[in-house]
Design a protein around this nucleic acid. Structure first.
Lengths: 197, 197
DNA sequence: GTCTATAAGTCGATAGAC
DNA sequence: GTCTATCGACTTATAGAC
């Protein structure tokens, strides 16, 4: 029996999770539309027809990939924020967690969430928007705190959108084999944001 | 005979241009892969087969849309920079021209350039990259000038990438019927960038 | 659970009439 | 230049055997 639960991405059902992870990479590299169910089957050693035992439609796979991408990132951010001692550290966590999730090893799922949104049907969008809002609420809380302390500028709503845009765009130009590590990039982007001279 | 000239997008050949403009909107709204040649034909009152008199392939239409988007924006920026009196005005022009080109009336072409890059074949990429680099070189010149005058921070290469990322991402959340005009948005994003308190 | 086989439809592109 | 008609390939999804 196929599952359709946005939240329960941690299920031990390894075949399903294996498929989601393989789909994330294919969707990221080729795009959702150009990736066929035969491609997905090949990636996990199944015939294309067998996929439909695990998922009812190809789009259900896309939604599962996106849900995994955003919830995993949210969980990592929540953990990092809980471990941070001061506001400056929390601010740094926003950049580090986001970039690591986006550019780190095998983390294609968040990128799919950001760049394949148009392929999601209207009926599936609300559930994903809830997950995205949960993540952005964490961001907003830290930014408001940092603005109150004078660390960053006051226009925190617009700041959140511009910062997330800057971070999302890194996938278009960042190269893992370049001179800059993900952590170094996070620090330099943080420095550009802080109210210091 | 079909034309294949990246630069000559101003050709008076109105049928071809009409098609490019219609394709820009369809590609933006539905994505390149989901837009069929039948959709393109309907949009300009042609049968699908007739398109191939004007373009050899569907991808050639995509490339023409992108070339139009980036060259038109570059031309507008060059004009605005030539009219600017000081560095602060040039900085403002970067934000205003980019956002107007991206969010203004019927300006779908630049958005297609930014978000359908994966659908461009490897053979067509170099020509478009040349056009994009021309645009980013204008940006880099202004940013270097502004940094020298202390208007913005010194890390201008990374700053260019983060700013363009912020601007590109506005298409994902900006609404024309909202409370903020494009010009107002440009000013507020500029304010977030300037080294002032 | 996974297979084989295929249904049922859509796709980009071409050929030839006008 | 645009039409009609269609080719051949490819697509998601289903049915039934194992």
């Amino acid at each position: 029996m196929s599952r359709n639960d946005l939240n329960n991405h941690q299920e031990a059902n390894s075949r399903r999770m294996e498929l989601i992870r393989a789909a994330a990479k294919l969707f990221r590299d080729q795009g959702y539309e150009r990736t066929t169910v035969r491609d997905l089957g090949n990636a996990v050693g199944l015939q294309s027809g067998s996929l439909f035992y695990h998922f009812r439609t190809k789009e259900e796979i896309l939604v599962a990939v996106m849900a995994l991408g955003i919830t995993a990132t949210t969980e990592q951010l929540a953990l990092a924020l809980a471990a941070a001692n001061d506001t400056r550290s929390k601010l740094a966590a926003l950049f580090h967690v986001h970039l690591h999730s986006l550019l780190g090893d095998n983390q294609a799922a968040l990128e799919v969430m950001l760049y394949e949104w148009r392929s999601v049907s209207d009926s599936a969008k609300p559930g994903l928007i809830v997950l995205r809002d949960r993540y952005e609420t964490l961001w907003q809380g830290v930014l408001d705190e940092a603005a109150a302390e004078g660390l960053i500028k006051q226009d925190t709503h617009l700041l959140r959108r511009t910062l997330l845009g800057s971070l999302h765009w890194t996938v278009q130009w960042y190269r893992n084999d370049g001179e800059l590590s993900v952590a170094q990039l996070a620090e330099r982007m943080l420095a550009l944001t802080l109210q210091t001279r």
